[in-house]
Design a protein around this nucleic acid. Structure first.
Lengths: 130, 130
DNA sequence: ATGATGGTTTGAAGATTGTCAAACCATTCT
DNA sequence: AGAATGGTTTGACAATCTTCAAACCATCAT
């Protein structure tokens, strides 16, 4: 069991994080991740079916790399599976309030963005914010 | 005296704001604006000399449009001059904590990005790496 | 071993974006 | 009126990004 390469907490760059977040697909992935709960160990499989965005698996892999390189997520390798989690603590330490502000605004943003609905689209909005 | 078109507070979109902020030049413009103070009426002329980023004036105009269209800034037209200000209140109302978090992280980010070139070597892409 | 599975890497096509230069527009000055 | 000024718009070019498809790699199952 190992971990895919990722920047240390101290190396996190604001511009990289903003860049990573400035994409509709990645925002949706973020929402999926956040919906898993605020516990530090909440992870999600890398499999296509686990996410509300339906794109090619290589595209998904690409977006995960962007998020990981920016320091937004952490990826644990177990066998041939990957488990992804939000780096809430590191982000909060480096950019206090940033992730929370984004997560809070996310449900409404996705609503307006329309299209892909997570299939149970009620209002689990409250779960997203820490 | 009029005002360049801008989205209403209720129309502000998270993705547009993140997009607008996910650029090194615009982050620097934001820092310049924020440095003017937190008063709601702190404005800054649109003139090239007023900003710490040295790019062509049409490029500057383009970036201001992106910021304005995203709702980050507001532009007042006086004669042949423009006066730009941060829409702090509107941003705070729509995305509480977001602007503050970005502004707080900005000084260190600009530090790492490398200071604005005092002299010469103005290659096209040399100004700020992405 | 052989094959299937989960995910990454590479390659290529199309769309976006950042930049400068030149033309343009409206306002102000002489 | 004519010229200068502050900024916008348009056009073009290079760089980057998103996406899918196909090849690839490592692990697990048979």
């Amino acid at each position: 069991m190992s971990r895919l390469p990722q920047p240390d907490r101290a190396e996190l760059r604001l511009s990289a994080v903003l860049d990573a977040l400035a994409d509709p697909v990645r925002l949706r992935l973020l929402a999926d991740l956040a919906a898993d709960g605020a516990e530090a160990d909440a992870e999600r499989s890398c499999g296509i079916e686990a996410w509300s965005v339906k794109v090619h698996k290589s595209t998904l892999s690409h977006h995960f790399k962007v998020l990981r390189d920016a320091g937004v997520t952490s990826t644990r390798v177990v066998g041939r599976n990957r488990w992804i989690r939000l780096r809430r603590d590191d982000l909060e330490a480096r950019f206090p309030g940033l992730l929370g502000a984004v997560l809070a605004a996310l449900p409404e943003e996705l609503e307006r963005a329309g299209a892909p609905r997570p299939e149970g689209s009620g209002g689990q909005a409250a779960n997203l914010a820490r």
